[in-house]
């Protein structure tokens, strides 16, 4: 990892323009809440949430081809932990507890399903959101006596924005290093042919388990940071299966297997769904489903895939 960092530093020294550009972008991003109204800020919060979740999804499912349908389970878990523990713990402690919980849940899911073929994992994650939701509801009814919780952490939209921005930046750094490291190579090898991967010396189970748990932490933290947007949450809000679906759409729309793919998918998708959900609220789910199927059938490589094919064709010498 140290050699990798050195290489990256070396590389960036050669590209001062890129470095300055990134710096300016970062400064603008940090200053953004001072210059926009709450509606715009809320849109950006939404966007950052989806960017983090879709990128986390891509880092594991996009590379290994183990399709997870459980994004909402981790998001909801994070939101509910904040609702339940928010009053008792200091914020930094809370964040650590939430992150660890996401990690542990992912470990349990991963240990029981990741050693098997991908379809078992998908089935398990398909039901996981419903499962966590049922357990939380049961706990609230039995132990607390009521479904739903008030969230006692006061956070302004700008607070949420900055926290999400930090999370997104951390995720991008982790993802960037991960994909360039030997782990990234292993993830892609597993996605291409798991048998070959293990006969080439890759600890397939370890890599899958570790990366699934790591990316699940980011999904859980997103739920925790976003929770104060609502003052009251109940299971249908926190464990919204549509959210898992939207994350999947965004990741596929952008292009799987590339770090920048999800962000390319999030922005257009969010704009379109904002439009559709206000214009056709009753048909929103249907339209979302149709849009998704169109992506699966017509642009399986996503927007970046289309662009890459186009460039390759243009650059390839014609016979």
């Amino acid at each position: 990892m140290r050699a990798e960092l050195a290489a990256i530093l070396e590389e960036s020294r050669k590209k001062p323009a890129l470095l300055i550009g990134l710096g300016v972008l970062l400064a603008l991003a940090i200053a953004m809440p001072f210059s926009v109204n709450n509606y715009v800020l809320s849109f950006f919060n939404n966007m950052l949430g989806f960017v983090v979740m879709a990128t986390s999804w891509m880092l594991f499912s996009g590379t290994t081809k183990y399709i997870s349908l459980a994004t909402a389970a981790f998001f909801g878990l994070g939101a509910y932990l904040v609702a339940g523990l928010g009053e008792f713990l200091l914020y930094p402690v809370l964040i650590v507890v939430v992150g660890l919980s996401g990690f542990l849940v992912a470990l349990v899911v991963g240990l029981s399903t990741l050693r098997l073929s991908g379809v078992y994992f998908t089935i398990f994650t398909f039901g996981l959101t419903e499962l966590v939701r049922q357990i939380v509801t049961w706990y609230q009814v039995k132990v607390l006596g009521s479904v739903g919780s008030y969230i006692f952490i006061e956070s302004t939209a700008a607070d949420i924005y900055w926290r999400m921005l930090i999370l997104a930046i951390v995720l991008y750094c982790v993802g960037f290093l991960l994909l360039r490291s030997r782990i990234g190579l292993a993830l892609n090898a597993i996605g291409a042919d798991e048998t070959v991967a293990k006969h080439s010396g890759i600890n397939v189970m370890g890599v899958k388990l570790g990366v699934f748990a790591l990316t699940s932490v980011f999904m859980t933290l997103t739920g925790a940071i976003m929770a104060p947007r609502w003052t009251y949450i109940d299971p249908p809000i926190a464990f919204n299966v549509i959210a898992s679906f939207e994350v999947l759409i965004m990741a596929l729309l952008g292009g799987v297997g590339r770090l920048w793919g999800p962000i390319v998918g999030v922005v257009p998708m969010l704009l379109v769904s904002e439009y559709l959900s206000t214009r056709f609220p009753n048909y929103f789910t249907i339209l979302l489903g149709l849009a998704f199927m169109a992506i699966v059938y017509h642009i399986p490589g996503g927007i970046l895939g289309v662009i890459e094919t186009y460039w390759r064709k243009r650059r390839a010498p014609r016979p």
Partner: peptide
Amino acid sequence: LDALEADSILATFGLLFVMQGTFFA
């Protein structure tokens, strides 16, 4: 078969929402 599995999971996941949305509508 693996690729078919992944594709059919994705396509029918979309179909799920089309049908569910229709029921709601």
